[in-house]
Design a protein around this nucleic acid. Sequence first.
DNA 1: TTCTTTAATCGGTACATTACGATAAAAGAA
DNA 2: TTCTTTTATCGTAATGTACCGATTAAAGAA
Lengths: 107, 107
Amino acid sequence: MRDDDIATAMRALGHPVRLNILRILATQQQSPCCCSDVTVSLPLAQSTVSQHIKVLLDAGLIERKSRGTRNCYTIRHDRLAELGAAYTGLLAGLTGGPVKELEMDPV
Amino acid sequence: MRDDDIATAMRALGHPVRLNILRILATQQQSPCCCSDVTVSLPLAQSTVSQHIKVLLDAGLIERKSRGTRNCYTIRHDRLAELGAAYTGLLAGLTGGPVKELEMDPV
DNA sequence: TTCTTTAATCGGTACATTACGATAAAAGAA
DNA sequence: TTCTTTTATCGTAATGTACCGATTAAAGAA
């Protein structure tokens, strides 16, 4: 996972509403969960929720499946696990100490 | 760890430059590492680096120690580990399914 | 004291994010 | 066909972020 991808995913998780959206998607895992299902659980406008969903989508943390007239979203556990592994790797590099080969991604 | 704190920490890690700053701090763990030490390793102005450091500081991911005329920064591994635990807890809640009862530790 | 070093902060610019209501497009029902 | 539902997107305003150069304040050296 490149630094840019880690940063993008971290930023996607860097808003309380989006953490809650993930939790809402998780609770309705049996039945397909669409944007309106998420919206009724949050004190936000539909357009705002849709925007937050897009951030999670662009970060690759959730997946969209068109089902009839609605779009259903599911959590991408594989990507969340990947991010966890990347974070663990980051920590390992930081605790390592003396010499750590750091390759700077082009900023 | 509250959602707001998780989000703040995630956002602090949500920029490639700040990931590199953590790595730079880690490589110079023996000798105290100050702002100028970080700046020479990055293609950014001192004021910009200072700003990024402040974000990490406000998120509680690094610590400042005034040493003479310079401010030395060290990684707060405890807080990084806390964030990792919070992330693990988040994942557990998401994979759980219907209703997730979080935290059950009798203190 | 004055001079230098270090780093936070200020002022400014450009762009991104978050929120909203309103609109448009797509799919199913009538 | 028309009507409804659903949701992405548009337009907009307020706020936040990222970067810079310039300035200020603090500490040490001369």
